[in-house]
Computed example of a mutant assay.
Amino acid sequence: MKSPSCVYDNYDVIENKLLPALYTITFIIGFVGNAWGLKLLLQKWQKLGNINIFVLNLGLSNVLYLFTLPFLMVYYFTGRKWIFGGVFCKMTRFCFNLNLYCSIGFLTCISVYRYLAIVHPLRMMGRLTVTRSVAISVLVWVLVSVQSIPDIFFPKTMNGTDKCFHSTSFEKADYYLKYSLVWTTTGFCIPLLIILGCYGHVAVVLCRRNTIEKTLKQKSVKFLFILILLFSVCYIPYHIFWNLSLYSRALSKQEICVWWDKRVFTGHQISRGLVCLNSALNPLVYLQMTEHIVSHIRQLPQQVRKLFRRVNVCSSNTLAVSKTEEEALEQSTIPTSGSA
């Protein structure tokens, strides 16, 4: 919500057209990818390793957020008219924050485990247990929940309107900016620095050591590429434009209209759509971290070929049986020499 003196005409156009389109794409791709990946993970539950515990929790956080997207799609498709009540509005926004920062947290855990396994394999042998992985996962959920709870106490709706604010009302913008800066530091900047430190050291070790298996090097490079994709497309633009937009609103509250406000708001709306794509891109982590899923994908063409072969064999057998029946029928209708 902007100050009346700082409103631009195309704000509603950006929100009502861009966001629902990106939400729709994310819901379709994300729901199919996460449901399929989680199904294969649960089928191999007994074989789950330490890192795969984090992958499973990553998928659960994605699914939790994806269930809220249809309500947001309705909200923006109808011109920002929230019809589901104030409590559910806060729940929807809470699930978004929970998914966002749990995703970053679990990606950080995966990076740290990969770092320890490559750089300190002997020292960490026997210490990276499933029990500890589960305990760390629970800790991530608790920390992110505690970090996100204050957001619930900021007003998300306004009396006499049917809005569901992504941040808070205009009157609380300056307070929300302070909270957001702390939130960004603890939930995004610190994990990003940890990931950069881990993979920076891993890159040095992979270049210097010739004893590391080629497959392990390839997995590390692929996972690094996924991290770069997620952070450059989803996380970094969102946090930059998110805080700049809040800062602009805080200035607007003082009746100060900055020249870059319109561009920042446009960038913020685009980044809001892109950050939700993390639920559609995170299944790439499933493919990289779980070997049985990769092998399952590789076997799909072979399974399809076998299916076609069975269909062809069945068709050939059916034609052969039909031809035999026709020949038998023709022979039964041919009169014999002793017939009248």
Rank of each mutant, 00 (worst) to 15 (best):
residue 78 T to V: 11
residue 88 F to G: 00
residue 66 L to N: 10
residue 42 L to A: 14
residue 80 R to K: 15
residue 95 C to R: 05
residue 38 L to H: 06
residue 77 F to I: 08
residue 48 L to G: 05
residue 94 F to G: 00
residue 89 C to W: 02
residue 92 T to D: 07
residue 88 F to S: 05
residue 112 V to C: 11
residue 112 V to M: 10
residue 98 L to F: 13
residue 64 L to S: 12
residue 38 L to I: 14
residue 114 R to K: 09
residue 42 L to Y: 08
residue 32 V to W: 12
residue 106 F to I: 02
residue 63 V to D: 05
residue 77 F to C: 11
residue 54 F to E: 04
residue 59 G to M: 03
residue 97 N to Y: 10
residue 111 S to T: 12
residue 48 L to F: 04
residue 90 K to V: 01
residue 105 G to V: 01
residue 68 T to S: 13
residue 99 N to S: 12
residue 49 G to E: 05
residue 111 S to V: 04
residue 33 G to Y: 00
residue 70 P to K: 03
residue 97 N to W: 06
residue 87 V to D: 13
residue 97 N to L: 14
residue 70 P to H: 00
residue 48 L to N: 07
residue 87 V to F: 10
residue 36 W to A: 13
residue 50 N to A: 12
residue 79 G to N: 06
residue 54 F to Y: 09
residue 43 Q to D: 14
residue 92 T to P: 02
residue 91 M to Q: 08
residue 80 R to L: 10
residue 115 Y to Q: 07
residue 113 Y to N: 11
residue 45 W to L: 12
residue 109 C to Q: 08
residue 63 V to T: 11
residue 40 L to Y: 12
residue 52 N to G: 14
residue 113 Y to I: 08
residue 40 L to M: 14
residue 108 T to M: 11
residue 37 G to Q: 07
residue 96 F to N: 12
residue 102 C to Y: 02
residue 90 K to H: 08
residue 50 N to S: 14
residue 47 K to A: 15
residue 45 W to A: 15
residue 99 N to E: 12
residue 104 I to V: 15
residue 62 N to H: 09
residue 79 G to A: 03
residue 93 R to W: 09
residue 97 N to F: 09
residue 112 V to G: 06
residue 37 G to K: 04
residue 53 I to R: 02
residue 101 Y to W: 05
residue 43 Q to Y: 10
residue 81 K to R: 13
residue 81 K to P: 07
residue 56 L to T: 07
residue 67 F to M: 13
residue 96 F to Q: 13
residue 73 M to A: 06
residue 99 N to L: 10
residue 49 G to T: 09
residue 83 I to E: 09
residue 71 F to C: 09
residue 85 G to R: 02
residue 62 N to W: 06
residue 75 Y to D: 03
residue 40 L to S: 14
residue 47 K to H: 09
residue 71 F to Y: 07
residue 61 S to H: 10
residue 100 L to R: 06
residue 72 L to R: 11
residue 55 V to R: 03
residue 56 L to K: 01
residue 45 W to Q: 14
residue 105 G to L: 07
residue 39 K to P: 08
residue 69 L to H: 06
residue 69 L to D: 05
residue 66 L to V: 10
residue 104 I to K: 01
residue 55 V to S: 00
residue 38 L to C: 15
residue 62 N to P: 06
residue 45 W to Y: 13
residue 112 V to Q: 00
residue 90 K to M: 01
residue 64 L to M: 14
residue 57 N to F: 14
residue 111 S to F: 04
residue 93 R to P: 00
residue 84 F to W: 09
residue 80 R to G: 04
residue 70 P to N: 03
residue 70 P to C: 02
residue 62 N to C: 15
residue 49 G to A: 10
